[in-house]
Design a protein around this nucleic acid. Structure first.
Lengths: 126, 126
DNA sequence: GATCGTAGTTTACCACGGTAAATCTCAGAT
DNA sequence: ATCTGAGATTTACCGTGGTAAACTACGATC
């Protein structure tokens, strides 16, 4: 059941995760802040998301209110696992190595990263 | 120029990276070890890879020898960056956090990971 | 009551990855 | 000379993501 979403679908889901529930119109407006998108495009994608059980809607008056059926963590996790398996053949250090080489990483990020790794190391030894 | 490849295309590229150059037949054989794939499928994908300048071929007698035009590091890097941007909005710690939670990580992997992170931290402070 | 706007529905394309059969071509075997 | 096998090429189909116009329905407003 690996839930894989396209980039626009992901942005739609993000609105739902942020706001709990939203109308198609609301989503169109939020997405359009970044780059213009036709309302019917958003509606089509919501439909496709509903088909694959990633969202559901309920009606009030003439308007649909959508909400997410899958958790953000679920989606991001399967995306990360997918990449890890497909591209890095399971090697987390391979993935992280590449990222550290090619991205500008803020000191805060590095801090968080170190904590994550050390925490996990500790866990393993207790 | 983000080179993005599908999973089978990636497996094809891996053969080329491993072997330097290979015929379509050779690639079919290698891929078929894992799961059977029609020769013509491999040829079609090689064609598509050639169209997008990921591979090139040269002819000897009646046979094409393919080689990679893009480096493995280039492809894996752009895949990782793509995921990072699209799904984790740039947060490496977010990505790594998810992976550490959901994957079994061997002690060796953790070791390498710690080294990576500490090394990078050191770099930043010199 | 005609019109306007907004919601949702239908329909249609395009691109890409993957899948593969069908066909063409030609060198080597019989 | 003919057949066979292996290579390459052509053609075709499906699924998914993305894109959006066209159409329908309906409540509110002039």
């Amino acid at each position: 059941m690996a839930i894989t979403l396209g980039s626009v679908q992901l942005r739609i889901m993000r609105v739902l995760w942020d706001e709990g529930e939203a109308t198609a119109r609301r989503i169109t407006d939020v997405l359009s802040e970044q780059s213009p998108i036709a309302h019917s495009t958003v509606q089509t994608l919501l439909r496709k998301l509903e088909t694959k059980r990633a969202v559901a809607h309920e009606q009030q008056d003439r308007t649909f209110f959508f909400r997410a059926l899958v958790a953000e963590s679920e989606v991001t996790r399967s995306a990360a696992q997918d990449l890890l398996a497909r591209v890095f053949q399971g090697s987390i250090s391979g993935l992280v190595g590449h990222l550290l080489e090619s991205e500008e990483v803020s000191p805060e990020e590095m801090q968080r990263l170190r904590q994550l790794v050390n925490h996990k190391t500790q866990e393993a030894s207790e």
